[in-house]
């Protein structure tokens, strides 16, 4: 059956969700990196001759109460939101996976203590805890990153711990031990690379959630601060005009949804991609 499986694998590995997800995310990354290339106007330029204009030829997404071009503001905000997606998760990812790897590999009292700490963190409602920390540190993007790193590492830690415990059972781990390799080499050169798949997949989903969370906090005034263009802040800007100028809130909303959707699709696609590959 091995040959049959190999062919089925080659055919099915790159799935449609993977392609669509990667495409959407890639577009947003390019837009975020070079907003000047895509934005037709200066995102902060006031134009008192064009206040609250509905979408039209001159302003495809319309303008806000200061006459700023919504399309340009959404494009420039992408830079910030992608930054949020990455920075809200990367520290938790790094710390959580290393700690989880050590816990899973060594076990014992160290693992027991970390596991209890995780239990305690998990008991509190996630959003309440985040808001409490930001309220304590003061609003702003940097403090939002700190809060997320402080809480979110538990997810990565739990995931990695379980995965390492699983990999440790496999014979290649025993072989590495018999070959006389030192613990840290076995852990980080052999086990961790094989345990990264679920972490990477979870990271995609986590980034999608971080974008939504960053926008929510921006909307609440706890994340990015006006006049910085951030999708959540843009939506908040438009909330007073929602009945007269729907376009102020809707377009940034659409932007959030597409990036979140793209990241989720990418995550799902990676599950299929890695899953098929690993089953060989």
């Amino acid at each position: 059956m091995s040959a049959v499986a190999a062919i089925a694998r080659r055919r099915g590995r790159i799935s449609l969700p993977l392609l669509i997800g990667a495409g959407i995310v890639l577009i947003w990354i390019v837009v975020g990196l070079f907003p000047g290339l895509f934005a037709p106007y200066d995102p902060d330029a006031f134009d008192y001759d064009a206040l609250l204009q509905a979408p039209g030829l001159a302003h495809p997404f319309g303008t806000d109460s200061f006459g700023r071009d919504i399309l340009s503001r959404v494009i420039w905000a992408a830079r910030l939101d992608i930054q949020i997606a990455v920075f809200s998760t990367i520290f938790a990812l790094g710390f959580g996976t290393v700690l989880g790897a050590l816990c899973g590999f060594y076990g014992g009292w160290f693992d027991a203590i970390v596991s209890r700490v995780i239990d305690v963190v998990v008991i509190f409602p996630f959003l309440v805890l985040i808001i409490a920390i930001i309220a304590f540190l003061g609003p702003g993007l940097f403090n939002m990153y700190v809060a997320l790193a402080a809480i979110n590492w538990v997810s990565y830690c739990k995931l990695m711990r379980g995965e390492i415990r699983l990999q440790k059972q496999l014979d290649y781990a025993a072989a590495a031990q018999v070959l006389g390799y030192r613990d840290l080499r076995i852990l980080f050169r052999h086990l961790v690379p094989n345990a990264m798949t679920p972490i990477v997949v979870f990271w995609m989903t986590d980034m999608a959630l971080a974008v939504l969370l960053g926008s929510s906090l921006g909307y609440l005034g706890l994340g990015a601060q006006p006049p910085e263009a951030e999708w959540g802040v843009l939506i908040a800007d438009g909330k007073n005009y929602i009945e007269t100028a729907w376009w102020m809130s809707v377009w940034p909303g659409v932007a959030i949804i597409t990036l979140g959707f793209g990241l989720s699709l990418l995550g799902d696609g990676l599950v299929v991609y890695f899953g098929k590959k690993e089953r060989s």
Partner: peptide
């Protein structure tokens, strides 16, 4: 030295 039973799990798939 040891040779293992399972030729699939006894080799690191990423090397």
């Amino acid at each position: 030295q040891m040779i293992f039973q399972d030729p699939y799990s006894s080799l690191n798939p990423r090397m």
